[in-house]
Design a protein around this nucleic acid. Structure first.
Lengths: 198, 198
DNA sequence: TAATATGGCTAATATTTATTAGCGAAATGG
DNA sequence: CCATTTCGCTAATAAATATTAGCCATATTA
């Protein structure tokens, strides 16, 4: 990992934990293992580092939600849907990098318009568009009752997003959050899926 | 309004806009119309002001969700439910004080455990408990199909909470957010309410 | 009315912080 | 192998910031 990457890495961790204004250039440098002024050989200044982080957040967003590939196979039935969705949510919730990006965005969302936009895309548009496609696929297969896939995607994801946000600020309740999400997911299936026997 | 109150008022506005670390004691004093050192006649320090604000956020929470009174009349039908719920959401979204408290909490939620807890109560528990009671009431009246009121409250409020958060960071889309919420509310009624004619 | 408390002020301080200037070693490239 | 870029360092700076000390007028109270 190059020094330039190490700086981003250290800054992301510190910004996520203490916020942009709560983090000093010196702290970042210390984590990297260099002195603060050396940092300016790689970035123009503190704000430049933040912008680079937002760039990388956007790139990661593209890579996760930009292409059709990441939708994966359309689940065949309720059990598979729940399993695969829980895995996806669990990964999103626990992956350290994604978690830090979330924490950074949520704290700095009011700093400027660009961060506001990226936060909305991360928190709303991206996840919802992805699940809308999955749900659409399951409707076409007759697994899910006909309805507006966009709206169902919101019903499905919104509670999960809020629970993930909760587990970010109260990691001690991570388990509880996952259980909550699973209960909600079961209820979603009860409500919107066709019953194979009846 | 006493100086002590003016300080809280100014600090809330500035913290909401620029964050705690992004706000100086001098800025607060300037808005109040005094010099920075005078501020220490009223509060021990900057953090003391933040704590007082969190106190008042808790108090407001109690006043909104603590008593049974604020639930109001149980709506008689779908139209009344939508009207009264949209009004409630619209108020929550636009009231300047509530909005500032939300913005303060969301930015400072990682600062300490107490703020984490208060944020969770504000964003999840409070609203959901309130709507669970309303929904329970409508179930007892036969307006809403029998189901778990707690879970329905989540389905109902989670998308609204996310849209309100969006309108906080992108006020230019406030209208769009409200439309989105109304669409979601209609869908909620389609899904969970009994149809009076059939 | 005398004594005290309140709440403003100015001046000062100690610390933190972002950033620049400029030096030197090592890597790189013609 | 010389020239140059890269990337670390130390030293310095300028500004911001939270907080304290102590003064004085006004309000409160005994």
């Amino acid at each position: 990992m190059s020094t330039k990457e190490k700086i981003l890495d250290a800054a992301l961790t510190l910004f996520a934990e203490n916020g942009y204004d709560g983090t000093s250039v010196e702290q970042i440098a210390t984590v990297v293992g260099i002195k603060a002024p050396s940092l300016y050989k790689h970035y123009k200044g503190k704000e430049d580092i933040l912008n680079a982080l937002i760039d990388s957040a956007e790139a990661r967003y593209e890579e996760m939600f930009g292409s059709e590939k990441n939708i994966g196979k359309i689940p065949k039935d309720r059990e598979e849907f729940i399993k695969v969705t829980m895995e996806r949510i669990s990964f999103t919730m626990r992956d350290p990098m994604i978690r830090k990006i979330r924490m950074l965005l949520v704290q700095e969302q009011f700093r400027n318009e660009r961060i506001s936009e990226v936060t909305t895309r991360h928190q709303l548009d991206g996840i919802q568009r992805m699940f809308a496609k999955i749900i659409k696929g399951m409707m076409d297969e007759g697994i899910v009752k006909n309805d507006d896939p966009e709206l169902l995607a919101v019903e499905l994801t919104a509670p999960a997003v809020l629970q993930i946000a909760r587990s970010d600020r109260q990691p001690q309740y991570e388990e509880e959050c996952m259980e909550y999400i699973e209960k909600h997911l079961q209820h979603f299936c009860d409500t919107y899926m066709r019953h194979s026997m009846g």
